[in-house]
Amino acid sequence: MLDRHNRVLQIIGVIVLALLILPLGIVVVTSFGTEATISFPIKGFTLAWYANIWTQPAFVSGFQSSLTIALLASLLALLIGVPAVYALTRFNIPKQGWFQTLFLSPTLIPEIVIGFALYQTLVISWRLPLWPSLLIGHLLLCLPYVIRLVTSSMLHLDPHIEEAAWTLGTSRPHAFFTIVLPNIRTSIVAAFMLCFINSFNNIPISLFLNGPSQNMLPTAILNYLQNNYDPTVSALSVLLMLFTAALMILMERLLGVGALTTTGTNA
């Protein structure tokens, strides 16, 4: 039968898993190589490339702004997304489906086009500085995640528990904070994490909206790769993988392993 002992499934499964992991493993190995260009297998062992990361101002400042933008965009997305979801799922809003489609519409526009359009409108027409433009771009990236995850959790939440709170003399806003919010906590944390990761990793939107004064980490690496092929990028990649691993552990701590696996489908 096609159970876990089925040879064919097992062979393909193991190969695919190896193909997913090995390339990243190769990157890790090359980060310790002593030669000036990336080579595999490596001839000697050094940590010099890790030190070299800090000599590249684009990487250091890029990391700082990527982190800031990702945090702010995720928070802002929650701040405007959660109330919208609450209104859509709890008030009898006419044309509810239209709003839902509108809020999810950024996912239908290729990110590269969002970046290009925002550059034209915000930077060229409105002469907005790059920093707020980047924040707006990443907010558009994040909002659909918030809408999707929080909506599904609001729909699963029994509306009667809120009504029970009102009958006990709680005001609507107070009931939201004390009754609703604790019960949709998981989806909010998950949405925040997804927003953060996707914003932090984003390239197409940042690509148009960064400049010499405003660097983002992924685009900084992209630029570096145009002119260099040394293990600094390998070392930086290892750090980014550790960063991803740390985020996954954090998610697991906050939400449990189950949440980790369902996150994948929404990513």
């Binding site: 997913l20 990243l24 990157v27 390239i203 992924p218 790769l225 991803t244 985020l247 996954m248 980790l260």
Partner: peptide, 17 residues
């Protein structure tokens, strides 16, 4: 988790590999 890790890893890193 092994499948999820690449999804959450930066695309630059994955293409760089």
């Amino acid at each position: 988790v092994i499948i999820l890790f690449p999804i959450l890893t930066n695309a630059v890193v994955r293409n760089f590999a």
